[in-house]
Design a protein around this nucleic acid. Sequence first.
DNA 1: CTGAAAGCGCTTACAG
DNA 2: CTGAAAGCGCTTACAG
Lengths: 344, 344
Amino acid sequence: MTDAVEPPKARRPNTRLEEVARAAGVSKSTVSRVINGEPYVSSKAREAVHQAITQLGYSPNQAARTLAGSRANCIALVVSEQGSRVLADPFFAGVLRGVNAELAGKRVQLVLMMSKEGDEQDLVNYLCGGHVDGVLVISLHGQDPLPRTLADAGLPTVVGGRPLGAGGVPYVDSDNFNGAMEAARYLVSLGRRRIATIAGPRDMAVGMDRLSGWKRGISQARMDADLVAYATDFTPESGAAAMADLLRREPALDAVFVGADIMALGALQTLHAHGKKVPDDVAVVGFDDLMIASTAVPPLTTIRQDVEQLGRTMTWRLMAELAGEENLPPFLLLPTSMVTRVSA
Amino acid sequence: MTDAVEPPKARRPNTRLEEVARAAGVSKSTVSRVINGEPYVSSKAREAVHQAITQLGYSPNQAARTLAGSRANCIALVVSEQGSRVLADPFFAGVLRGVNAELAGKRVQLVLMMSKEGDEQDLVNYLCGGHVDGVLVISLHGQDPLPRTLADAGLPTVVGGRPLGAGGVPYVDSDNFNGAMEAARYLVSLGRRRIATIAGPRDMAVGMDRLSGWKRGISQARMDADLVAYATDFTPESGAAAMADLLRREPALDAVFVGADIMALGALQTLHAHGKKVPDDVAVVGFDDLMIASTAVPPLTTIRQDVEQLGRTMTWRLMAELAGEENLPPFLLLPTSMVTRVSA
DNA sequence: CTGAAAGCGCTTACAG
DNA sequence: CTGAAAGCGCTTACAG
């Protein structure tokens, strides 16, 4: 709700720094210093300026700041459009919420760019053109060299989700490996003997890391990690097809770890269609803990990742770098946690 | 994928308009005219400039353009954070996709702002401060005066979803009324006799419009439109509770129109728990056609709205206004369509 | 701790 | 159809 908010009198002829200076009885330089939080300003001057700013409802012209200064006061969030939408939607909204939360209070704008196939050069030109101070990149596919390109151009860049083709570029990710391993161990602890997995597409690290974690968990229990089906994308349909494949190969399987809730939904359908009771005949564990996990039939046991925290952490990492902090951790992994419901 | 994309040689010392002018053998004014697509430029000059631009990989400094010109070349998408996240997530991602699609090729940046309770004045100051040329507003709640405030300040504004407290501000919405009416008629045509509805919260037009449509459809069939339960928010839990309430009031109900798929998921759970077979005992129709509608148990018959198209249309409407087009339609309604699956 | 002045890279009347 | 010049509103050395 916006209560009693008044539109500034006029639109264009805005209050300028000069008027603030006049009202505060100081020079433009001093006002500028106060605004930018620089030291070496007498507290008397500082106070006068703050008062004038509030009184006049002054809001600095960003374009002028950018042009005159070296900073753009702006970071970009780049999302690759060819990304599987399924995975992208809740993921994307969550990340965005985190980015915004972290940016709150800072005078930094967020511009959103979707990278469409074909205009990569435009995108790179724009990003490297001084319009933004840094870049956040999410939902990368395959060996996309974008992060490497940006980093090589000297633009601070942080990737969300381990990138496959960007060795050395800082990234933040959920701990997919350990989360998946926990899922596997849990199924083992339940006494399941033939445990399968549905893995995400091979061209995304998220799929591969969850697969690796599952394998490790299964192998450590001295069981065979051979029941692997790859889904072609993060959709219920793809999950359903993979499940059918697994049942064909091993009708006696009694558990499955599905590398994404959205695929698990499809897997549940297939199991139901084959007359398999969940969890009695087959235990199912998903990953992500989407909102719909709790209304799945039966409610889905899953590994929860905190997507909003992912957005926050990416932003924190980028802003810290922009602030000149040194020896920042290049890679950050966020812990996952298991949510036990009915399916396993 | 970004193949063979080269980072501009240096970051700061970018190509400037002046260099393009020199390379093309014309004045800065002429280059500016070409870039801005103004008439009165000889095709010879135009061509030379285009060539120079491509050769030098020139990308205009937006800050300078904004400062010198009157346009910001930038529009804002404002999302109110207090919005029910449930409804917001897929909705938001879809709208965003549409906005971006419509903006493709245009030299207009999209900045994202989430309005947090408490900083409305900051938000309004910023938006009205000449930083953006226009505003797109979505997921408004209650009588939020934000759109009115912006419009009164002379800032072109388009709202996504009929706003309750912004009389006269242009908006784009899905045709919730007719979609819901179609759902009601369909249930009637199935021979159902006691048809209920679960409506969204009273403070959002989307909930009220769908309720109105359902009422009209039911009344026209000369049936009682009295079985209404209001959900407190767009969540499965809220839908489940509303369904339980309806069953308590009318154990013999044989159909229910749920004003959002995400609530329908909860309603299905409640029906299942009460031993009601869907669709045999109770037919269920949802609204939205989220991806998860097809994997509901049973797969959900629903009214599909095209959220991406909503984003595109909002953007088109705003850009048309910015381009100075006159007599634009103030309100635009996008058609919905029924998707028949198993639940009804 | 403070101010006068130059300059960031464009657009826009103005004059031709 | 084209160019020279002023100016958009800040920041940043520089001098004090």
